[in-house]
Design a protein around this nucleic acid. Structure first.
Lengths: 228, 228
DNA sequence: TGATTGTATTGATATATGTCAATTATGTAA
DNA sequence: TTACATAATTGACATATATCAATACAATCA
């Protein structure tokens, strides 16, 4: 229903279908060579500046992608959940990781080793095209995000973040994210975020229960976000 | 020399080598099918939301890429110059243009029609890989840019913009860009930009001659940008 | 249970930045 | 050249937002 209110496609990377319905030989290659791993909430999957060892498929859990500023402050530019793949960009650009990925919850991953992944895109044209399509799509998402950061107020960005988070957490409108992470995602201070959330509560747009945000009136948030 | 002072790679898309040294059949295909065109300063190459007809190779001139906010305000997220290709993302993601591209100067383009471009990436693996590499690289550039917008002050971003613009205009430190465009690039108001430029002039970092910025002391700007 | 630690909230305050209005400078066309 | 339009600059002011400090709340563990 929120889909009709909001151009969601422009806000999500939608890279969860790249490995779906691949030919049998590819699927079995992955099954054969993948390395399953588990990480606890708070642990880091990979660090900015390090050399990639492969591509991760997030089987369960949620992660944050962020880069770190001079003062050590995180800037979260994306949250990923089940079935999304992470860490493929720098493998394709042949660079070190441009960002850090850490777990918001306990997570399970399949690691597809670098050489397996690279041989897959050599041999499977379909997969290569899906990758290209996915990464090109992200370009538009980023242009959108930078514009929002540059032109919209904290209040507007906070409203927008809640709308996006509600979809992300897909759980009766319950959003469970620390104020610290949430503020890094919005691009503001913790205190400013808290005050804005307080306002939205006063206005009846959300409820706050033990730091969990429950969306009450999405339309009010859409209006506050100042789009459309 | 600025290269040693600054991690330039993290700020430029570097997509000017995708069509260089292609096999002869590709080069001749382009020569055969390309449509040459000229646009005057200020004219728009393509608009946000429209359907792509092909990929543009910028032969001479400079362009701005921007998306437009609700109030009509532009947000410039990238400047491109000679030899860069533009408009390929949405062709690859099979979407409409996510941004507008307009000429900062008189420009000459080669338009490679959509079907020609798509058949090229079908048939030339090397080119497909270069594209993938280029677009993946942009991902890191964007994460960097969003962090800067989220965490750095107008003064810091303005300093950074001048450092980047000096490279872009590659002309004895002469930067020719309207205050309006420059402020859209920095993500601030015209007045705030003007005041910050005034400060940098007072501090001896730049000179201002009839709205042209001449860089005097890059190290001061690097320091003001608050990196490294 | 209480003690301890981390997280969230609130208050007070300073300041960076945007906005509005006025002025000056610059470029352009007749 | 003058006249006109556009761009750049400066000033005054309002306000959004960050920062610092204090408090309240929640979660964990001995």
């Amino acid at each position: 229903m929120i889909n009709t209110l909001f151009p969601c496609k422009r806000y999500s990377f939608a890279n969860d279908t790249i490995l779906v319905d691949l030919p049998n030989d590819m699927t079995s290659l992955i099954e054969e060579r993948k390395i399953s791993m588990k990480l606890k909430k708070g642990q880091v999957l990979f660090y900015e500046g390090t050399i990639p060892t492969g591509v991760y498929v997030l089987k369960t859990g949620k992660v944050k992608k962020y880069s770190t500023g001079l003062n050590g402050k995180e800037h979260i530019f994306y949250l990923a959940k089940e079935n999304e793949i992470v860490g493929h960009h720098c493998l394709l650009s042949k660079e070190t990781y441009a960002h850090t990925t850490a777990c918001l919850t306990d997570c399970e991953f399949d690691l597809i080793p670098k050489e397996v992944f690279l041989s897959m895109i050599e041999n499977d044209h379909e997969m290569l095209h899906r990758l290209l399509k996915s990464i090109s799509h992200e370009f538009g998402v980023f242009t959108n995000n930078t514009r929002i950061l540059a032109q919209h107020s904290v209040r507007e960005r906070t409203a927008l973040s809640i709308i996006k988070l509600e979809r992300f957490f897909d759980n009766d409108g319950c959003i469970k994210l620390s104020r610290k992470d949430h503020s890094s995602l919005v691009g503001t201070s913790i205190e400013s975020l808290v005050r804005t959330l307080h306002d939205f509560k006063e206005e009846g747009a959300i409820e706050l229960k033990e730091s969990i945000i429950i969306t009450k009136d999405i339309e009010k948030l859409v209006k506050a976000s100042n789009f459309m």
